[in-house]
Simulated scan of single mutants.
Amino acid sequence: MNARPTHRPESFGLDRLKTPIGIALLVTDAEGVLRALDWEDYEHRMRELLRLHYGAVELRNQPAPASMKAALSGYFDGDLSQLATVAWRVAGTPFQRKVWTALATIPVGTTLNYGALAAKLDMPKAVRAVGHANGSNPISVVLPCHRLIGADGSLVKYGGGLERKRWLLRHEGVEV
């Protein structure tokens, strides 16, 4: 009889950061690298995304690096360039990682529609796939999925709610 090997769950730290739009959940690995950022009122969704990306996950209360919290607080206080200083790492499929990496290249204060991002990835027919990958982004704000809008310029879907998306865009100088 062959016993199935048991795998220990992936272990991450969980911290909270008060922001003007709610309590942010910060999930970091043993090296202090951001693995997820979501909102306290969407914790269940965040845990499900972590499970999908990493399998079994154990979250333990552990402070995120002070430099990460300072950078995020700086962003929310108006120093929009601070997001670029946050170290992050994602799992996901190669396509998802490609989309998430591309999100980080959308400049602060600008938006892009899903079709334009698909074209930027040299996959103009992958608009729906880009949208799906965007919706599975585990690192809100830092990988700025809020900067993606509908083809007609409308605000569409945001895992943390459209009011947060509107706030983030206005905070970055985008009139919505």
Rank of each mutant, 00 (worst) to 15 (best):
M1N: 06
M1Y: 12
A3R: 08
A3C: 04
R4Q: 11
R4G: 08
H7A: 15
R8F: 03
P9I: 07
P9Q: 15
S11P: 01
F12T: 11
G13K: 13
L14F: 11
R16Y: 09
L17I: 00
K18M: 09
T19Y: 05
I21R: 04
I21M: 02
A30C: 07
E31V: 05
E31H: 10
A36N: 12
A36T: 09
L37C: 10
W39C: 03
E40D: 09
Y42T: 01
E43N: 04
R45C: 05
M46R: 13
E48Y: 10
E48G: 05
L50C: 05
G55I: 02
A56D: 08
A56Y: 00
R60V: 08
R60F: 01
N61E: 12
N61A: 11
P63R: 13
A66R: 09
M68G: 03
K69S: 13
A70R: 15
A70D: 15
A71W: 05
A71R: 12
G74W: 03
Y75G: 13
D77M: 13
G78Y: 13
Q82T: 00
Q82Y: 03
A84K: 08
V86D: 07
A87D: 13
W88P: 01
R89A: 12
V90T: 15
G92D: 11
T93N: 08
K98A: 07
A102N: 09
A104Q: 09
P107C: 08
V108Y: 03
N113L: 01
Y114E: 06
A118E: 01
A119L: 04
D122C: 02
D122P: 00
D122M: 02
V130M: 05
H132K: 12
A133I: 14
G135F: 14
G135D: 13
P138D: 14
I139G: 02
S140Y: 04
S140C: 04
V141N: 08
V142Y: 06
L143H: 13
C145N: 13
I149G: 01
G150M: 11
A151G: 15
V156D: 02
V156S: 02
V156N: 02
K157W: 02
Y158K: 00
G160C: 06
G160P: 03
L162G: 06
L162E: 07
R164T: 06
W167A: 09
H171N: 03
H171K: 05
E172N: 05
G173T: 00
V174Q: 06
E175S: 08
